[in-house]
Design a protein around this nucleic acid. Sequence first.
DNA 1: CAAGTGCCTTTATC
DNA 2: AGATAAAGGCACT
Length: 301
Amino acid sequence: MGQGDHGRYVSVKIHLEPACPLNLEATLCCGQAFRWEKQGEWWFGVVGQVPLKISKAGDELRFENASTCFVRNYFSLDDNLPEILRRISKDSHVKGAVREFAGLRILRQDPWECLVSYICATYKSIPAIKNMLLRLCTKFGDEVLFEGRSFHGFPTPKGLAQATVGELGECGLGYRAIYVSETAKTMLETGLDFESLRRMPYEEARKTLLCLSGVGPKVADCVLLFSLGKFEAFPVDVWMRRVILRHYAKHFPREFVSKMTCDKSLGNAGYERLSLFGRNYFGKYAGYAQEHLYHYERMHG
DNA sequence: CAAGTGCCTTTATC
DNA sequence: AGATAAAGGCACT
């Protein structure tokens, strides 16, 4: 794939046009993917089963051990970002986030990896999630050597279905171990077809995902947005709830706002209401607005 | 350093 | 339907 004749890895470059920006830092730090680490100039990551490294200098994107096609797809370089940003720039607050993180893109992640990652991510902090997934991959993923270092591919449905709940728990999954185990078994038995989900409308694909163990509305929306191309999905977590209450409260009845402010957990109805607001207000690329607002809130809030 | 708080929530139960 | 509790442990103050 990217490996050269003499066992060295081919270095490839992509020139980024002004109309096709990519903010590598924001894209890999905004909390949508959990398997990237920066070392000096380079970002190292494993996408599915393939380890690769990537860096950006000026308008030049450079990477090793991946094809141009692969990188264009994973970083969604064919999405028309200027058009997307124009459509979500509904007010001064999003505009501020869009300005600050110019070039932040929604990755096109592998659906299986994304699904398991977000089942694990429930009620965890990002550093903890990264740690947990690293342990999960190290224990159950196939080892791949890259530049003399050991990386691990993401565990397959079969690999996780065969693991005992106890073994999964050893990776720090806690009560999520049972959800991952059950979802992996469901994957094996019914063979959930992610490609058909990709073709379905948002609502329909969402209903299918919600049948899986450990998948509620938040996890479903993350999988739809980050791996199935449903850009209208608007995941709402504690950070997004704060954003909405601080900057978009006027779009809701006062009674609802005060309830949201006091309540510890937003129930299913509360979730749907906030998420639906995002979809209606920001439109078909609401997910892009969500990720900008989320990252902005985490950086400044 | 200990103790406390919060975490990109879901499920089970009432 | 709608509210409430429990879950397991890590990261950070």
